[in-house]
Design a protein around this nucleic acid. Sequence first.
DNA 1: GACTCTTGGAGAAACGTATCTTCAGACCGG
DNA 2: CCGGTCTGAAGATACGTTTCTCCAAGAGTC
Lengths: 388, 388
Amino acid sequence: MTAAANQSGRRSTSRRLERAGIRDVAAAAGVSITTVSDALNGKGRLPEETRSRVREVAERLGYRPSAAARTLRTGRSGLIGLTVTTYGEEPFTFTEFAYFAEMARAATSAALGRGFALVVLPASSRHDVWSNIALDGTVVIDPPDQDPLVTELYRSGVPVVSDGKPGNCPVTAWVDNDHEAAVLDILDHLSEAGARRIGLLTGTSTDTYTRLSTEAYLGWCRRVGQEPVYETYPAHDPAAGAVAADRLLARPDRPDAVYGLFDPNGTDLLAAARRYGLRVPEDLLLVCCSESDVYAGTEPPITTLSLKPRKIGTTVVNLLIDAIEGVDAGSSGGQRAEGARLFPPRFRTAGTGPPPGTLMPTELIVRASSQRRSPRRTVSPPRSPGGG
Amino acid sequence: MTAAANQSGRRSTSRRLERAGIRDVAAAAGVSITTVSDALNGKGRLPEETRSRVREVAERLGYRPSAAARTLRTGRSGLIGLTVTTYGEEPFTFTEFAYFAEMARAATSAALGRGFALVVLPASSRHDVWSNIALDGTVVIDPPDQDPLVTELYRSGVPVVSDGKPGNCPVTAWVDNDHEAAVLDILDHLSEAGARRIGLLTGTSTDTYTRLSTEAYLGWCRRVGQEPVYETYPAHDPAAGAVAADRLLARPDRPDAVYGLFDPNGTDLLAAARRYGLRVPEDLLLVCCSESDVYAGTEPPITTLSLKPRKIGTTVVNLLIDAIEGVDAGSSGGQRAEGARLFPPRFRTAGTGPPPGTLMPTELIVRASSQRRSPRRTVSPPRSPGGG
DNA sequence: GACTCTTGGAGAAACGTATCTTCAGACCGG
DNA sequence: CCGGTCTGAAGATACGTTTCTCCAAGAGTC
């Protein structure tokens, strides 16, 4: 009894309307499974005629290769993890922030464009979920110093790219905004608009974004000779922002301009200003960091700083996939991550040296809230039949 | 030469700092791989002493079981797909709608809570991505009639649960809102608030939500004897909504109340009303379907209908996992999906009969825009030092 | 003392693919 | 006519688990 006969025998006895496997295709086409595999994957040396015949048979049988078997054999799952480690314990509060939602969306899209799928996994999630999924690589958002998850992933050979310059954990590459530059830009912008005392609404957490931004503000104050005026609050608490905004405007040394580091701060500050009878921008200049376009429709519209989450998400994923595909293959000539490379792309260097980092520019969207003179109209309003 | 020696020999010769496998653990602990597997998975008949010893060795070696091998062997990947098939071709425009974002978030969270991870896959994405991923089941949002993807998934034995009552494709189960009831509720609400002619802002697409809602409106008009006043636009076009809102209020038979089916309609209608000098709610009552809380802060706050995407997402995933775990195991007594079951849960019945459906209630959040008398205050405003 | 249970654990067969190696024959130049 | 190259394809192995089957030895039991 040959091995083939044995196999097909086993196969037929245990037949219980299972999906067709590569063996069934081979049997039906009268070829070996090697030939089927080669024909379907465009490998091997086969005449086009055999290829198309096998393809046809496979189609007819409704053959779908087993992703699990392929993953086991090739060591590649086509799956990328996306995780966020900071910002409280709840699994998904984080996508409430428009930044994360946008970033995740762009990341998903970029991954799919390169043949990878993205799965969102909070760091706090059950360990069995993490270990039950074959990941080719992971994107980590804002890893804190000494993040154990990142360290373990890196140790086990999984490429890790972080959104946010990593504090002290080993990553394959990272992408971040130049937060110092962005804050200084805003402060200058507010100064030019006539601000004399600029306040800051910031967070209590120790992630890189909050820390760098606050430090940039304090440094600017020192340099310019202004006494810092700021209030902090736990950024993941949605109610605390309004209270902090109120506190900031209730101070005896009330600022005449405020920059809020977090998305809801614009609304919070606007409401607080109203309560105190402050007109925006006449009495108070306002800027906040946000990806939401509701600030184009508020009264008045509020100037926002965009961290360009779409660009970040796309770049992060492309860097990660570059690393994944670079692990065993050299430069494959595919589409690569773009951006201002700080270092040459040396992936997975076992030696010393910092991981390659990329800085993405931010964008200040200037609206009425930060200009004493109303901004030039760039878009004409729709026809106004009611007159006006 | 025994098989074990052969294996370990092969192992050691090809050793190139690979991850430790179950064989390495077995060798180090001086037991068989069967024992290791049983010890780590809590199966078999082993004394606690052996179990803990094996666990310890595994820990020491940093052993992580291969998810791919486990998936191949058990036939379960722990992965659930989430896909949307309607709403244009672009892969991810859909998460721009707060409904989908919320729903996806809740779904992800619910899946993780039960040990599954969720991967977002647009139906339009490259076929190789779909076939490269082992999915235990799929959630489909708003499947159109005769959706080929759903049909193929169902045929290949993958459980499919849909958000939105499926038109004509076979699903394991579905969850939806009672859209007719919701629309009728709103129309009654507006009538009670004094509306004489209620308009509708609706979409041009043929998905269930748009169709059912529009039909409910038309039926209501017929019953009440009001001439329908509505405008349609392609819902996935962000700019078209404002134009349609404008059109609706520019009509000679201008409505004195409007219900907008889509999230941005509230803002659009408010802006249009302003342009026409219409006061809300005095001259125009406004309701729109939205999950965004920006409508609590608009001037005036706008009454919204929530479709409870979090509840839907949670329920859909729970139903799906019930089906997945019910395929081979009977009632496992785990946490099950809740909700108003329309049919007893008969999963994967090959026979006739409709798939089990669940209707989730909607919630009307009444705000100033739909009441001629200002609503009772339910929350007192924060202290107002500025007076007022 | 021969017998059944029970306990603790080993062996080996899958799971379904990709790929490395081998091999038969065709073709070809000399 | 013969060694070499090239083409088309088959065989067998490995990927790393889980699990089914089976066995040895000790503990009761009559």
